[in-house]
Amino acid sequence: MTTKSESTKSNAINVRAAIEQKKQKKNLSYLIEKLIPTGLFLIATISILTTIGIIYTLLSETIEFFKQVPIMDFFTGTVLKPLSQNPEFGILPLINGTILSSFIAILVAGPIGIMTAVYLSEYASDKARRVLKPLLEILAGIPTIVYGFFAFTFVTPVLRYIIPDLEVTNILSPGLVMGVMIIPMIASLSEDALVSVPNSMREGALAMGATKLETTFRIVIPAAFSGIIASFVLAISRAIGETMIVTIASGSSKNFTFDVTQSMQTMTAYIVEVAGGEAAAGSTIYYSLYAVAMTLFVFTLLMNIFARFISRKFREEY
């Protein structure tokens, strides 16, 4: 008897202890449940802090720059001579180089990208698509420095056979290579747009006696137009922000010209040149880095917002 009552007694104690333990555990897990969301929220704010960091650093140094160089001189100046005795800081040569190289790139990637998208979505068999798409993705995965090497040591020498006047560093060759780089981007985004056009529309056109080509050009492409334009805008924005290809293959002359055989500098290449040149903090040329970067940042941001806007606003719902 005694043993039994003792055992129940000890059991009772155990139960009580167990309850206590359970309570503590519950408190702990309750605490965890409360703390986790806050912790995760703090982590999530890091992405916002990054944005704030970018805007703050760019803006504060840019304002400093505009105290030393009038804002109108910067945006309308056609001469960029940061290192001369009487330095001039006009950004137009850089904007000119940036737009020219991106323009050449889109001239290559636009038509080829769309035609690739059309082939993949309208013509290719499932088997062909499964082989071709990953292969094209490789193009997008190659580091830009490799493209830069390719432009400088292969494309430029080849082009110089065809155009003897071409300078060793020029804007044409990096523009062309950049075009190849953004083909997969245009192709895959445009293909998404083409694929989302419902089959009933294609079948309607085919039933009316249109050929596949006519269906593609008159029905499918117009229906997917907003998506295709969005892919163009995103690709251009990518080309504008591209750095290594132009830095290597286009040199650092700050020419203000439309002659693509000449060396020109883009905004990105200027940043590399000045930042790599150990510009003394506090000098005008150091601040010009941030003013150029700010311009670049605003350019690409606006284009990205614009791309989102058109793909949302003009998307045709079927």
Partner: peptide
């Protein structure tokens, strides 16, 4: 995601 990588470099 759309900010050019060089801007991150400056940051």
């Amino acid at each position: 995601a759309g900010v050019p990588s060089i801007v991150y470099g400056l940051l």
